[in-house]
Design a protein around this nucleic acid. Structure first.
Lengths: 208, 208
DNA sequence: TCCGCTCTTGACCATTTGATCAAGAATTAT
DNA sequence: ATAATTCTTGATCAAATGGTCAAGAGCGGA
């Protein structure tokens, strides 16, 4: 019988360790060079193993990419999920902005990986965008709309508000190079950015 | 003597026409597949000529890429340049947002090309970012700061305000696929987005 | 018309790269 | 201990791709 790919069954210690090593290495490399710009050799080197060994765990380059995307999608949406209809509108939204800024600062690679995927037409996660993502966004948009209609928030198109929050916060991860080029390499940017964004959105959304 | 590359000297009609064909084709292809994901053959096919012929006009793939970037940079910054210290602050900024939205709607490829370049660390235009771009942004930031200090605009970090406008407007070009996945393929998005953004920023920036 | 220069391309080359394979090393179960 | 299974990698392959070259076609000025 030919050499069998490790199936969904029980995972060896080595298997678990190496798959994690590969996923970590792949995130770093894919987020910098993109899918096409990344070579399997690069990932293997960063993961500290030979290319054939890497391909023993993930048969194809594409499989690694998809696995990395899936592994990070959940974390990336977590803050949106946390928006609570029962909370105070401005408080909930400023928490959301703060959480997204935190992610942009601490996990910029994940943001860049998504940005790259979507920029290129989301060939791998198109289904996810139209399914789970849309559902979650619609649900949270409904909450925001209800807040506006109750006069607890300035009237605003909730979907575009969510887009605006995504765009402004992820900007600091995705376009980090540009931000640094303009602002210099200091370390206080993110704090100032967070303060500015929260002030801007809070003033913009306070019911009047 | 070896075949000489057409120098900066006088340009043939054919030369002008073909270089433009190549640049147009290259923008379309690079903006979709990125630098590494694009093949010279693809560009040549789209420009309606053979690969060697394309390489007669641009010796290396990289030369085409740089030329396309340079050709579009100016247009992309034009709206920022138009911000006028002598104008009304809220009016100037809402015009700026509208102009950027217009570009995102009409020339999304250009936006995606830059997004891709910056996302990958701006290997080709790093100099431009730290030079001309930074200078222009600093100049306009000074204007915005002066408006704030004169009480004609809410106090705000001008650099981060500019970043916020870039992020929110270019989002509709760069992440078009995601926007469509969530909102459907209707045609009214951009108008609604523009209204929402202008309202948000105007409320957020009105002096209080 | 004729000559020189520009333009065009099929064929080709070298390198990169995703993927395979066979054989041996390490680990695990009995 | 030993057999079975999992893990590892050097060597190799085939396809894709950036770039070259020589030879011919087309164009413009005298």
């Amino acid at each position: 019988m030919p050499q069998a790919k490790p199936v969904a069954a029980r995972k060896t210690r080595i298997q678990t360790r190496n798959e994690q090593l590969i996923l970590d290495a792949a995130l770093e490399v894919f987020s910098v060079y993109g899918y096409r710009g990344t070579t399997v050799d690069q990932i293997a080197a960063r993961a500290g193993m030979s290319k054939p060994n890497l391909l023993y765990y993930f048969r194809r380059k594409e499989d690694i990419y998809v696995a990395v995307l899936e592994h990070t999608l959940a974390n990336w949406l977590e803050p949106l999920r946390a928006i609570d209809a029962a909370g105070d509108p401005l408080d909930q939204l400023s928490r959301y902005i703060a959480a997204k800024m935190h992610l942009s600062r601490e996990k910029p690679e994940a943001s860049r990986l998504f940005a790259n995927e979507i920029l290129h037409g989301a060939p791998m996660i198109g289904k996810f965008l139209k399914g789970p993502l849309k559902d979650l966004v619609d649900a949270k948009a409904a909450i925001i709309r209800a807040w506006s209609e109750a006069g607890r928030l300035a009237p605003v198109d909730p979907h575009h508000l969510i887009f605006a929050i995504w765009a402004t916060t992820q900007h600091y991860a995705d376009f980090d190079v540009q931000v640094r080029a303009v602002l210099g390499n200091g370390r206080g940017h993110m704090r100032a950015a967070e303060r500015t964004l929260i002030a801007l959105f809070m003033n913009g959304l306070r019911p009047r």
